[in-house]
Design a protein around this nucleic acid. Structure first.
Ligand SMILES: [Zn+2]
Ligand SMILES: [Zn+2]
Ligand SMILES: [Zn+2]
Ligand SMILES: [Zn+2]
Lengths: 166, 166
DNA sequence: AACGAGAATGAGACTCAATCTCATTTGTGT
DNA sequence: ACACAAATGAGATTGAGTCTCATTCTCGTT
């Protein structure tokens, strides 16, 4: 039931869905460090290591995941959470909450290309990413109508994935 | 910063938003008990008390909230969580995750009239409910296209509410 | 290059939602 | 009333996330 597998599905405007992989990993790390510097922060080994780790994953990573990924390099819990708070405050990462009580984070996209949301399978726990221009349009229109200045939005679908349907 | 206030905003198809209150509280409690009975479960005082409590709230309630609302009637933690698991499994309640590490639940609507999603203000923590037919349409179309049988979906907007905008 | 104020870090204590265990109570059909 | 199964609850336990504070590191200044 652990959501440890990751597929990435891109939904075409009209037809079905197909896999894709984004590739702005390295630019993101640089942009993140630059934004942090410009925000007036000093360098820090822990935060830098975390940025390195996060730049290598396109989707939903929990803090336990990060601590494991850091492996050799010892980074204290507090530093991880502090770095995440900073990155999130600067909109460099997005928080993803799939409802298992564990917060996950993923790189925020530099150029809207990589913006996506998630489906979670109730049975096998697989986490599937998708993106849909129509959905985004509906959300933006809605946000305007509400007079709520939404800096972030999250959409999660829950149900049975194609594999578990049988 | 505690999300303890609740507004409920209904978004019209075209114009702005106005308050509304739903009123299928009592029918819901009856329907819930009936569904549980038909699913082959025995009666239980704890679960019954919880259904009573939940039938009186239209929106997002945390377990600590429930325990407080139960007040006099002593219901064990384990029973509360077990009841929630059962109710959720039978789609009688919906899980709402606003990202503060505390799961919330609310009655599932008998008749789609009360279906809604949430906005959370980053600053004051207020939780605002809204519903939007266009958004729902986009989600249903999307779900079909993905071949993902979504039994549940969650949309959360984060940002500054009208009051905090200033 | 040495200095010092302020920022970043990390070990570990702590909080608290959520889970697990198991003995006890309650519901239901006979 | 009886017996078996389901439901309940006290309490222990897990684990994510927070907090504190002493130490280390950055970086501008001398
Ligand atoms: Zn993702
Ligand atoms: Zn989106
Ligand atoms: Zn609600
Ligand atoms: Zn909806």
């Amino acid at each position: 039931m652990e959501p440890n597998q990751h597929l990435h599905i891109h939904v075409e405007q009209d037809s079905g869905a197909h896999s894709h992989t984004s590739a702005d990993a390295l630019p993101w790390a640089d942009a993140a460090r630059e934004t942090i510097r410009r925000a007036g922060h000093s360098k820090g080994a822990a935060r830098d290591a975390l940025i390195e780790i996060m730049s290598q994953r396109d989707c939903a990573m929990s803090v336990p995941d990060m601590e494991q990924a850091l492996g050799e390099r010892p980074v204290g819990r507090a530093s991880v959470y502090r770095a995440l708070e900073l990155l999130h405050g600067l909109h460099l990462i997005t928080r993803v909450d799939i409802g298992d009580g564990v917060a996950r984070y993923e790189r925020a996209q530099l150029d809207d290309d990589d913006h996506h949301h998630h489906m979670v399978c109730d049975r096998c726990g697989v986490l599937i990413a998708f993106d849909d221009p129509e959905l985004e349009a509906a959300i933006h229109k809605l946000s305007d109508r509400l007079g709520f200045e939404a800096t972030e939005h999250e959409v999660t679908l829950r149900g049975a994935c194609p594999d578990c349907r049988n």
